[in-house]
Design a protein around this nucleic acid. Structure first.
Lengths: 191, 191
DNA sequence: GGAACTCTATTCCTGTTCGGAACAGTACAC
DNA sequence: GTGTACTGTTCCGAACAGGAATAGAGTTCC
């Protein structure tokens, strides 16, 4: 119930967002959901962070914990979004500006230091990256496929996840093209 | 002189890389250099982190500190890369695999939660992002311009920074195209 | 000449975030 | 029935970010 709104980091709201589907999840399940969707646009928070975040959100009354008593021995808590949780989330969405994306690109960083390494190794670096990229893209494509097609009324709720997934796929595609070109430039010895 | 190599986080090596140009810098200057170049591909470390990182690198003998004694009162330390620093950097580059890039995209995150916000606000979000993107791109273009043209022997050392800057520019360009398309899709009400 | 301001330079503190280890129960295969 | 994988949670330490505090040096400008 606390009204400390906008005091929370973005990750808190990302997790709240994952709970807007109405079901109640354990920390473990929430982490899985994050790995499945959030990971592509926002780094999936660490296990430990999911739990500490849930504890804090519960303290603020934005999620409600329910002890799973099916087994008395088994300690397992399920969390669901509360009314004020949903309210805090929409307030955050409409009242704050989105920051510019942050990119940590180890491949670009290494290419930047290309003068320190063997040219062959640089090429290997980029080709290896192309491989990883294809893998990632395939994973995201699977997610995208599960969201149904545009115009399908059965998946109308998936409209925005679909848009974002398409964004991600296009991004991976453009990254592929760019790296392909870089490899060509390097092979041709263009300085 | 310590041989704990590959025990350091990536940021340490990023900073070492910024010192490969041969000059010796203060923490402050190093942060400025990071803001100018590193920022586009790797989040520029916080001021505080630059200093603590330099202290650690000095402890490991990878950089050498020199007290600036021009003014006895003024405390100011300049750091330069040592031989073992350069060695550690090249060893890291050739012995470890590059991880996959990490993206934290607040705009994509908010679009994902589009069902919670007013459609007009979503459009505003994306258009605002286009503006920020254009700014960023212009900043990077300036950096790119300062690196000279391909084939120019005066800027042969800038070859790799140039490649990476072009990568960044292409990335910003593709991001613009994608967001333009998303805006069109949203306006046309395609689900 | 001094007041206000900006820039260089460093340190400290707090909070966020990540990754892994540890622990424990459950389910399934072999 | 024994290993092995999966579910579920907690704790710890390190990495990382951001801002406040401090302080001298240079510039502006009235």
């Amino acid at each position: 119930m606390s009204q400390d709104l906008s005091e929370l980091p973005t990750t808190s709201y990302a997790l709240l967002g994952l709970l807007t589907l109405g079901d109640d999840l354990t920390g473990y399940e929430l982490k899985q959901r994050a790995d499945r969707t959030l990971r592509f646009y926002w780094s999936s928070p660490a296990m430990s962070q999911v739990y500490s975040e849930l504890a804090r959100l519960a303290q603020h009354g934005l999620v409600a914990a329910r002890d799973d008593e099916t087994e008395p021995v088994r300690r397992s808590r399920r969390y669901r979004l509360t009314g004020s949780g949903r309210q805090a989330l929409t307030a955050w969405l409409s009242s704050t500006e989105a920051e510019f994306p942050t990119l940590k690109h180890p491949v670009a960083l290494r290419l930047l230091l290309g003068h320190l390494i063997d040219p062959e190794q640089t090429l290997h670096l980029l080709e290896n990256y192309l491989g990883q990229l294809a893998e990632r893209r395939a994973e995201l494509q699977q997610v995208r496929d599960s969201l149904g097609e545009a115009g399908d009324p059965a998946h109308a709720t998936h409209r925005f996840p679909r848009l974002v997934a398409d964004w991600g796929l296009d991004y991976y595609g453009s990254e592929r093209t760019i790296v392909d070109d870089l490899i060509t430039r390097l092979r041709n010895g263009v300085t």
